[in-house]
Design a protein around this nucleic acid. Structure first.
Lengths: 96, 96
DNA sequence: CTCAAATATTAACATATTATAATCTGTTAA
DNA sequence: TTAACAGATTATAATATGTTAATATTTGAG
């Protein structure tokens, strides 16, 4: 791969890293590793305000890291990409 | 590990992610994967200005991701932590 | 000693991010 | 249809980050 391609990749990958580069958002990803969850569940698990949780989720979804599905009154969020899952596992392996 | 500990970890790890969450800095880490390099070498490889390169290096060093040693006129930068190396490898494996 | 190369620092400015609080929207059940 | 819950959106102020250009520092060569 040449420099131009690497540069392009680095922008995309850096974007993912940047999105993960926030304690709240990282915690959310962490909490989603085992199973999909509703906003309220995430709120409680991560001890964050409703507004923040919602905003973090929005950003994570916009960056393509998580998916959402509606289940009546609830919104279920889950990790979208297998690579994010692998990355999170690696992080846990290295730092936990 | 309890939530409080996880929260603390997430701050530290998020900080690393955040530091890596920039195309220029990520590119630098990438370029350092195979061998330590001088500022000028990095500048040329990554096609970045001298000032930016120096600033990115400073930030990477402050975040504990890289090390520097002086070799006369030159400053050699290298990846500091084996975990960063593993993380970068994982990124390359997943996204390159 | 002095010059040029290598690197670092600073200043100025624009842009992005975050936290918080308030408000809005959608859905279910009584 | 309304109360109450789940979630999203918006506004705003504080803070952080990034870019660029200019200037400073350090060091080896001659």
């Amino acid at each position: 791969m040449n420099l131009k391609q690497i540069k392009k990749k680095s922008i995309d990958v850096a974007d993912i890293m940047k999105t993960m580069g926030h304690p709240g958002r990282l915690l959310i990803l962490c909490s989603l590793l085992d199973s999909k969850k509703t906003v309220t569940e995430i709120e409680e698990i991560c001890e964050m305000s409703q507004s923040q949780t919602s905003q973090y989720l929005k950003r994570l979804e916009a960056a393509g890291l998580i998916d959402s599905e509606k289940d009546g009154k609830f919104h279920l969020y889950s990790i979208k990409d297998q690579r994010i899952r692998e990355l999170m596992s690696k992080l846990q392996e290295l730092y936990c």
